[in-house]
Simulated scan of single mutants.
Amino acid sequence: MTDDITQRLSACYTGVIHDVMRAMGLKDFTLPPELRPNFPERTLAGPAFTIDGRVDPNADPHETLLAWTGLLSKAKPGHIWVSQPNDRVVAHMGELSAETLKNKGVLGCIADGYVRDTNFLLAMEFQTWSRGHTPRDIVGYWLPRAFEVDIRIGDVVIAPGDYMIGDRDGLIRVPQARVEEIIGAAETAIATENKVRTAILAGVDPQEAYIRYGKF
């Protein structure tokens, strides 16, 4: 389940989105490069379903699993699960959770922390961005604090419904209020880049191509 904006954004790439947003004077929209995808060849794009979490080493194991499964049930189809767990110890996505989210129509996961069951995530082709992997789980250790709230990953504040785009180069947050304007400018820039590419391949001097099209 994807909307038109998601489909159009998916056809773009992070380099051109970055350049468009920079030219608009926007700042703090590129997520930390340490976040990497399990399918780098695939673009992930869509609106964010945001999660904020907290560590509680004294949490009751049953309570943590009740809270986690309850959170999974709130995830929105056609969205990306975007989590700030405020933790770099345990995994914040795994096989059964990913199966649940994929079955609900969630497009993928971005976790500013670790994940696990990586072979299963690969087998089910669930696009997952993370800082790494660990077999440790959340049981008796971590609880969700809130969902559909503003979260911060690195220098980037992500509001619920903001759009995310990620490809082999990295991840970018696109503000919901300006997403159509940004996509439109990116589509125009891509068309211009195609003209520059054609000129370069035809032997046009790169500086001449830049002056001719205003893009390089």
Results as ranks from 00 to 15, higher is better:
P85E: 07
D87V: 15
D87K: 13
D87M: 14
R88K: 15
V89K: 00
V90M: 07
V90F: 04
V90N: 05
A91L: 12
A91S: 15
H92W: 15
H92I: 04
M93N: 15
M93P: 14
G94E: 05
G94D: 01
E95Q: 09
L96W: 14
T100Q: 13
T100C: 15
T100V: 12
T100W: 09
T100M: 15
L101V: 00
L101Y: 06
L101Q: 05
L101C: 06
L101R: 11
K104E: 06
K104I: 00
K104T: 01
G105E: 11
G105V: 05
V106H: 11
V106I: 09
C109M: 03
I110H: 12
I110T: 07
I110E: 08
I110D: 00
A111W: 00
D112E: 15
D112T: 05
G113N: 12
Y114V: 00
R116L: 01
D117V: 03
N119Y: 09
F120N: 08
L122V: 13
L122D: 10
E125P: 07
F126Y: 09
Q127N: 15
Q127C: 14
T128I: 06
W129S: 05
R131N: 11
G132N: 05
H133M: 02
H133W: 09
R136S: 09
R136I: 05
I138D: 03
I138W: 06
V139Q: 13
Y141M: 09
Y141I: 06
L143C: 05
L143M: 10
P144L: 07
R145S: 14
A146F: 09
E148P: 07
V149Q: 07
D150K: 04
I151A: 00
R152P: 07
I153R: 03
I153V: 13
G154E: 05
G154F: 01
V157W: 00
I158T: 04
A159D: 07
P160Q: 02
G161W: 10
G161C: 13
D162Y: 08
M164T: 04
